[in-house]
Amino acid sequence: MNWINLTEEAQLEEINKNSAVKPQVIFKHSTRCSISKTAWNRVEKSDNLPDADYYYLDLITYRDISNKIPEIYGIEHESPQVIVIKDGKASYDADHFDITVDDLSEAIA
């Protein structure tokens, strides 16, 4: 899977714009958390996720971007967290062990 590193706040505007064309997925990952590592591995190892742009956010390194996401999308911050953006809105989010490939696939489709 090709992940786009989310490292600049300006990318959030790009995500909003592109979400009108195809789903955008943000995976907020805490590199210090074993639960986050488990959730990341589930998603990363999947080879059958639908077409979307997939963004990876290291929320420890890019805390400012992580903090901006709840402001923009009106969702509560969690870690780990996966968010699907469609038409400029968070259409789905899941956190911790609720992050599953099946649910994510359904939300993207």
Rank of each mutant, 00 (worst) to 15 (best):
L59Q: 12
L57R: 08
L57T: 03
T31D: 05
L57K: 10
T100A: 04
Q81W: 00
A20N: 15
F27I: 09
V43L: 02
L12T: 06
Q24I: 01
T61S: 14
I35L: 13
I99F: 11
L57C: 09
W40H: 07
G88A: 10
E13C: 05
E106T: 14
N67Y: 08
H77K: 10
H29E: 00
T61H: 13
A39S: 14
E71H: 09
D102Y: 08
E44W: 07
S79W: 03
N67H: 13
I108Y: 00
D53Y: 13
T38W: 09
G74R: 11
S36N: 05
H96V: 03
V101C: 08
N67L: 11
I83P: 05
Q11L: 04
N67V: 01
L49T: 00
N18D: 12
K17S: 07
L57F: 09
A20Q: 14
D51P: 05
A39N: 05
I65S: 06
T38R: 15
S30R: 09
S46P: 06
V21I: 14
L57V: 04
S91F: 00
K45R: 12
D95T: 08
T61K: 15
I15R: 13
I83T: 10
T61C: 07
V84M: 00
Q11T: 01
A109Q: 13
E78I: 04
I83L: 11
P50M: 08
Q11N: 04
E9A: 12
E9K: 15
W40Q: 02
W3T: 02
L57Y: 02
D51T: 12
A52D: 01
I65G: 10
E78L: 07
A20E: 12
K86Y: 07
H29V: 03
K86Q: 11
E8Q: 15
